[in-house]
Design a protein around this nucleic acid. Sequence first.
DNA 1: CGGAAAGTTGACGCGGGTCAAGGAATGTGG
DNA 2: CCACATTCCTTGACCCGCGTCAACTTTCCG
Lengths: 251, 251
Amino acid sequence: MPSKKNLKIKDVKISCSNCSLAELCLPHGMDAADLEALDSIIKHQPPLHAGQHLYRAGDEGLSLFAVRAGCLKSYCTSRDGEEQVLGFTLPGELVGLDGLSSGHYVSNSLALETASICALPFLQLEELCRTLPSLYRQVMRVVGKEVTSDHEMLMLLGKRSAEERLATFLVSLSGRYRARGLSATEFNLPMSRQDIGNYLGLAIETVSRLFAHLQENGILIVNRRQVVLLDLDHLKQLVDSCTLGRSASAS
Amino acid sequence: MPSKKNLKIKDVKISCSNCSLAELCLPHGMDAADLEALDSIIKHQPPLHAGQHLYRAGDEGLSLFAVRAGCLKSYCTSRDGEEQVLGFTLPGELVGLDGLSSGHYVSNSLALETASICALPFLQLEELCRTLPSLYRQVMRVVGKEVTSDHEMLMLLGKRSAEERLATFLVSLSGRYRARGLSATEFNLPMSRQDIGNYLGLAIETVSRLFAHLQENGILIVNRRQVVLLDLDHLKQLVDSCTLGRSASAS
DNA sequence: CGGAAAGTTGACGCGGGTCAAGGAATGTGG
DNA sequence: CCACATTCCTTGACCCGCGTCAACTTTCCG
């Protein structure tokens, strides 16, 4: 038995019931009995270090993953080797949905910082969904959210200026940190300018210049990956016109 | 009883088992018994005329829809009234997935030409999925395909030139017509230049110029909405480098 | 300490957006 | 059947947002 001082994360019983992220994650809105059933199929993964892949395109897609700590980047590559960043997964969020169609992942998932992750095998999730309608609806809710967020992204890439894109990105990050109980105005960017630019369909130089420009205007302070949002309202105003019309999504 | 000469469509028993589009649609790969169960929950809709909505953002989202004939346009609008076309639905394809997350549609679906449509109520579909694993997997496959195609679209909008975008669009249409047994090289565009440009993130003038340019180079002939693809291989070559890397999707 | 990776900043030019004018097809009322 | 309006599409001229190229600085890491 390890000494109490060197207690490793993997020695702690991981369960949804005691997870501080449950409110953000799949268990959201499920009762105690259902949670226990969900717990029983969850597999804790060994921690993933920065630069390691959770899965790659072509891998057998057998699980959905929930991020407990760290940050993942989802991306796919075109035949000519170009990369397209599809999104970033923060604690409390799910990744790996795209494996459930064909049984193989189509995208790649890479840890940007050391990440702690739970796995939910599709087969057992499917069985459980059959007996737990609440879980089935949760899964559908998550799937639907994925589709909706992709649609917002399509509008962003199709119609919006570089400044609006970066503002949208920052406001999104801000909200997601706030949801976890962290500061909405001061945080570290887990990803490089390269990744940000790729994600937003912009050159890294443009991203850099936009940061500089926003800083000149007193809207934020940025130093490498450290960001302080001074005028979040101003950023939100830039975003507002871009967001979808009549969805009353409070989350 | 109506005369045989004036037999209306609605007088014919609609069922998946006798539908010529079954191979493209949800029933793909299901056996006769399962098909019958699926038939029992399908509701035939009155035909939709060009310009009419199948559903609007905010409507109660209770059904998935399968298009039997015609063409639909999916789009959403931002708070400032701008429209983003999300895609086009051709016969044999499904639409309405985005209603299943929140119970309300987030996007709009509009008929571009008179359309004949089947409805699959979510609740009954969910129940049926519980007893028919093959149907459950089909639904998941469709959902996954939706996500994957959104990802391809993100790459298209984020990284590709105007010419590559239009080529991708044309090759996609060509393949979908071919799948229905129609010509892959001669067809009518069901949508306006406006819709094409909006969908691809381009100005309509750019779309028009690109058509002219491709025609000058002998790659296609276009007259308003009538298109003849003379050199499909050339178009595919333009597309090839854009498509996702190692997905072995044959469909 | 040295080399690589990440980020910043400036100069320049092009792809494609915007504006404007005109043609072709379709609809509408007389 | 024609005059007229409207919508859809095309084509040309202009120009600006942002990508590209290049040089430099800072940070990271062995």
